[in-house]
């Protein structure tokens, strides 16, 4: 067991945790933004799946990672727009819409992927390179984990900081929070509620799309059917655990990453426990964390309620 507690073990462990957490944090940030504006997107899984598939298809046919990324973003936005049409324009139940989106995305991507592959298996597309940030990456323990990453990961750090400032310090951020808390009050203060909700959903699609694309373009290089396998839902849990703030969500997602990295580590060093049992660990941890967290306190007051102008 001594090999468990060396510095290099912890470094690798932390690096794995961050790697596992990044797609979740992208999706979680997108979901945070949508929920702040009062729209819950249970369809995050579908948004990510679409992002993953279209980024793969884009990168495969064009041979360019940038094109792949853009396609992934477009794929994610496609799903969030669909969600917007159903629950903003038609003012329908957001949960039902989100569920439909998940199913639609699963059907669509599986179908298109089969069409693309015609039975043959795909080779990998190349993935984004990592750049170590001079100085920072040399910090013991966390340097390699956080600062020897790819460009999308650095972008994520910037986005997290920007959105934290956005909510805490800017006019638009304040308006944004008001839309989720009290849309009627927001509208009467001259804030175009639906415009804000649409913007939030588009950002939700972009970030969710990147989250899915990240799996393909940075980590795996391949697409497989239903490859998101629940990450979208875990992102939703992270938003709740993070009390609907970007940095809180970041911490919650990282916690999940740590639990997951831990179980993988334990597997590789050959602990004599069933790998399936170990794999329960991150989910069990999330459940325990939710058991401890109070549910409603941080959620925007009007979350999930369709806003119809002029009604009460």
């Amino acid at each position: 067991m001594s090999q468990l507690f060396t510095l290099s073990f912890f470094t690798a462990f932390l690096a794995a945790a961050v790697r596992l957490a990044v797609p979740l944090i992208y999706a979680g940030l997108g979901e945070t933004i949508a929920e702040k504006a009062g729209v819950i997107n249970i369809g995050m899984e579908g948004v990510m799946l679409d992002g993953a598939f279209f980024s793969f298809a884009g990168a495969w046919y064009s041979g360019s990672l940038a094109v792949g990324l853009l396609c992934g973003i477009a794929g994610g936005v496609l799903m969030s727009v669909l969600h917007g049409v159903i629950c903003i324009v038609l003012a329908q139940d957001q949960t039902v819409s989100g569920l439909a989106i998940n199913m639609f995305a699963l059907g669509l991507t599986s179908f298109l992927f089969k069409l693309m592959s015609q039975g043959q298996s795909y080779q990998q597309v190349e993935t984004f390179e990592t750049y170590a940030i001079p100085g920072l990456s040399k910090i013991p323990l966390i340097g390699a984990a956080f600062f020897e990453k790819d460009i999308l990961c650095y972008l994520l750090y910037i986005l997290l900081i920007l959105f934290t400032i956005f909510y805490k310090r800017t006019d638009l951020g304040l308006s944004h929070i008001a839309v989720g808390e009290a849309p009627h009050a927001a509208e009467s203060a001259g804030i175009p509620v639906h415009l804000f909700q649409w913007t939030a959903l588009l950002v939700n699609g972009v970030l969710g799309g990147i989250g899915g694309a990240y799996l393909v373009l940075v980590q795996l290089g391949v697409f497989t059917e239903n490859m998101i396998s629940g990450r979208g839902y875990i992102a939703l849990a992270a938003v709740i655990l993070g009390r609907h703030m970007p940095l809180g969500m970041f911490a919650a997602a990282l916690l999940f990453g740590l639990a997951n990295a831990l179980q993988i580590r334990l597997q590789t060093i050959g602990v004599s426990v069933s790998p399936y049992l170990l794999a329960i660990l991150p989910y069990a941890m999330t459940l325990l964390a939710m058991l401890g967290a109070a549910g409603r306190s941080s959620r925007p007051e009007s979350l999930g309620k369709p806003y119809v102008r002029g009604s009460r």
């Binding site: 308006s175 808390e181 203060a189 001259g190």
Partner: peptide, 14 residues
């Protein structure tokens, strides 16, 4: 907006 202060409510959306 009940979750906000008086000040925030007044400047909201301006």
């Amino acid at each position: 907006v009940e979750a906000m202060t008086v000040f925030e409510n007044i400047i909201l959306g301006d």
